[in-house]
Design a protein around this nucleic acid. Structure first.
Lengths: 160, 160
DNA sequence: TTAGAACCATGGAGCTACTCCAAGGTCAAT
DNA sequence: ATTGACCTTGGAGTAGCTCCATGGTTCTAA
């Protein structure tokens, strides 16, 4: 089949199919006399696999690694487990941070008391005020790995 | 103050500060005789605001809109509320989809039964099989928020 | 027979929100 | 005079596509 039909069946754009080929995730298919790509069901399988993994939010690099295993079923599979575990940890961390975010936004929305001008808007006031709060989301309290400790301790003289 | 100190106080890179200027979020400061940018506390305020909003996962475009309100406190503020609401909806949708993802990954991880080769790996088998499942994450049945409509509407013509 | 629509090809630019780098200018201290 | 730490600019790179221009091909209908 040609790229259009393949893309339709895999539910993605032809551009995306070509992109996956260029990125090394989809093997280059044979060409017809006119240069058109000619795909078979194996390509569709592979695309479905890629699509499913993308839906699981995996990076193309990770998917590429998984595809290695698909094409080499005889190698040791421990890395697959670790890959999924890593993915899971990422997703869970993201959920946690989004939940924090959600409560921040909910609190923010509660500041709206139907004022009519931006100057009186509780949300805006809250945003401006919160920007200086040491304990707020934008100041990494325990996450910090690099010791950037003297950021906030710069004195207030702009001399030169 | 020069860009280095400003960046340090705002806890971001000098590159990011310059980027924000180029993106129109931070007004260009005056220059010294040698061409160095010369910032004041207003710039720091603004950067703190931007940083806080970024931590709330807002896009630069949204932040830009908010900054309009900050600098024009006399305009009607209903759009602020809508902006925050939109952000909240986005975040909640993302949380929901990540939770689905999490359970998928957990189920996937449970497929690992300490096989030694990729060919026997339950995770991989599951991934390959699930790719064809009409009800799985990668087929936007009801999850689709703003899906490109004619993709999913090619349901049963995919026969071989 | 021929016009048009619907495909296909390629290369390159654009998107977000930065981050990094190279080449060069400036300034204070040694 | 020479470090070294700053600063400047422009440009490239990241992920994962998406879109576009330009041109070739194939099929169908008038």
């Amino acid at each position: 089949m040609r790229i259009g039909e393949l893309a339709k069946r895999a539910e993605m754009k032809t551009d995306t199919v070509r992109y996956y080929e260029k990125a090394g995730l989809l093997p280059p298919p044979p060409r017809r006399h006119n240069g058109y790509r000619d795909y078979g069901t194996l390509h569709l399988e592979r695309l479905a696999f890629i699509r499913h993994c993308r839906a699981l939010d995996m990076s193309l690099a990770d998917i590429s690694r998984l595809l290695e295993f698909v094409t080499h079923p005889d190698v040791e599979c421990g890395a697959i487990d670790r890959l999924i575990d890593g993915q899971l940890i990422q997703v869970q961390a993201r959920i946690a941070s989004l939940r924090t975010l959600e409560s921040q936004l909910l609190a923010l929305r509660d500041q709206c008391h139907d004022q009519k001008t931006a100057g009186e808007c509780g949300i805006l006031q809250e945003l401006v005020a919160a920007a200086h709060d040491e304990d707020c989301v934008c100041h990494p309290a325990s996450i910090g790995e690099t010791d950037t400790d003297d950021y906030a301790s710069v004195p207030e003289d702009g001399h030169d």
